[in-house]
Amino acid sequence: MIDLSLLPYALNLAAIYALMAISISMIWSSIGMLNLAHGATFAVSGYAAWNLSIIFKPIILSIFGKTLIAKLLMGFVLISSAMVAGAMFGLIIYLLAFLPIHDKPNYPVRSLIITLAINIATIQILLFMFGARNKGLPKIFGFGKFEIFEIPIRYDQAGTIISTIIILGLMLSWLKFSRMGIEIRAMMQNPEGAAYSGISRRTTAIPVLMITGALAGVSAALLSQTIFVSPTSGSIPLIKGLTIALLGGLGNVPGAMIGAVLIGFLEAIVGSIQQRYVMFSTFIFIIIVLIIRPRGIGGLLDDTRE
């Protein structure tokens, strides 16, 4: 009998992984870049949120005291600062890894290498500036837990799950209905056709990288409710996001979501038995899936398109 209290934990993990995996998947399918600097975006926005929270915490406390408004305001400051920092970092990635080489030979491999270099350099620069010590962000959702159907749920878990659902819903509907979202989806489905209908890859890449950077910022702010901010805090979410994006089939948003939920549950279950085997079991699971379905869970679509 599986302990039902694992459920919120698994969903919490799945929410964060889904945020990362969907961004990576989106970048890959729209502009053909495997963004390995996503972990760096994660860490940078975590640090930005931490810095701003230090500046704003005394101000908010002195004006509003310990009221609900202060808490909401604090949460707003945290998430928005992380989002803005993530978007700005996305712009840096655009300027370094996309703009100079997007029409040059061997672009996919070269952009992968550049984003990898950005990731390494950023982690080291953060280490250099802030040191290796973990920083704790203020808790937006507060401490404590409540019960639904006799399943205990911590406030931060519930907050993360709900805000992820809201943000993903907002983003997916933006992708579905806004003009720019339609352009991005056109590029994801058929880059050549999009180019023929006058959609510029160069200008569409800016919102893609900024939005995905902002998503990484959100996931940094949310995950930092559970763990700490540190220079290398982005690498585990990056690897997880990457593996889940691949597991779901690169460029496939529903596949990435299914993958995130599967891996979240797997990790929650394995983690409750023995924390050490989490990575191990994840990779074994992914290897099995890849051997059965060489293009990931949602990869069938790619085959038929070709």
Partner: peptide
């Protein structure tokens, strides 16, 4: 990392 970046660009 910076050498890697410059060389690749």
């Amino acid at each position: 990392a910076i050498i890697m970046l410059v060389v690749t660009i």
